[in-house]
Design a protein around this nucleic acid. Sequence first.
DNA 1: CGACATGTTGATTCGATTCAACACTTGTGG
DNA 2: CCACAAGTGTTGAATCGAATCAACATGTCG
Lengths: 210, 210
Amino acid sequence: MTAAPQLTLVHDDPLVALGEVKTVSAGSEIFLQDQAASCLYRLVSGSVRTIRLTEDGRRQIGDFFFAGDLIGLEDDGAHAFTAEALERCEILVLRRSQVEAAATTNAAVAQILFHAGAARLQRMQRHLIQIGRKSAIERVAAALAQFAERGDAETVELPMSRQDLADYLGLTIETVSRMISQLQAHKVIRLNTLRQLRICDPMALRQLAA
Amino acid sequence: MTAAPQLTLVHDDPLVALGEVKTVSAGSEIFLQDQAASCLYRLVSGSVRTIRLTEDGRRQIGDFFFAGDLIGLEDDGAHAFTAEALERCEILVLRRSQVEAAATTNAAVAQILFHAGAARLQRMQRHLIQIGRKSAIERVAAALAQFAERGDAETVELPMSRQDLADYLGLTIETVSRMISQLQAHKVIRLNTLRQLRICDPMALRQLAA
DNA sequence: CGACATGTTGATTCGATTCAACACTTGTGG
DNA sequence: CCACAAGTGTTGAATCGAATCAACATGTCG
């Protein structure tokens, strides 16, 4: 479950031979909603959000991605979401056709795709429960706890805006803000800056995340 | 997107050789939450729901499955959900290890797994948006519209209870009931029985589904 | 420094939940 | 076959949590 360190990842990764690494600047798009999905992307460094905009302007964040994650797996024909770099990113760009071909001859590649796909589905299921059956405070606590798992320290970086968080959790920006304030008031977390916080009471956070 | 007729499916399916068909009676479990996920299941006939129960008793339906669907794809180590037959079902039981092995030598099998996985992810994304960003009436309308796509007639069978629908949509049973009543009052649908309805105004339904 | 974007906080409103009563459907045994 | 009971679904009234509307604070960047 825990991501291998980056360097190891890049060197061991049998996918590396199948594509090339590109650098993407903060805020720019990696692929667009409704575009043909001819590529897969392995995020080498940085962080990415996937967004879907509905006709009437509602916004849903599909997920946030970090180093090691495979992006674009769910898009068979066309991309259902737009992927945007939250900060400067390095991404390994892979032709979908090439990867699928490789998977039939190289068991390691097939393994990677299976596991990445299954992991993706499990993350989405967790996300579904978060959104479908949890209160505002639980959703925010769960999201923070989740980000904390990534960086193993108790210091959590939030590369995304409050609006992103809101659209990820199916809440409004005001509610997210209120819940974060509430967590602070209860000494569960402490904001260093708006985008960086320390988890003071991990137990309480996990409990709230339910 | 539209499921092939059952017979064709079973005969053409390269997975058939890899497993055996079993019959499951209504209400019984196909696999259990947190159980080791050693098998995949191809639903040959009938319908299935996947459920997750949280410690504190909240219930979330992962999805409903119908003939042709592949169940258990998302579960790499252990099953995140319990799968239960909504009615008498025939299921093709496949050893996961065997299928994965077959995928590396048989491109058709690999294809099936990729496509099924991608389709699953896309359904979940749609589900996520439904739950995260839609009102009660939109969620119910979207769910009915979705079921209507399956059976190509305007008559829709609902093999699941109102409670299932509620837990699928992240609503309460009362709200689901109210929304269905409302759709009836507006002549968008008409209940034949509690579990079977006719869509009188497909345009309006699609519009409400947003 | 000043301007604009981002985030916070408060007051009010609104939609969905909760609690409660009632209706319908289904299955069982007398 | 009917009576009854249990399960399932519907409807109404009151409540609650999150959204909305609005003002203000803070952070960021030219």
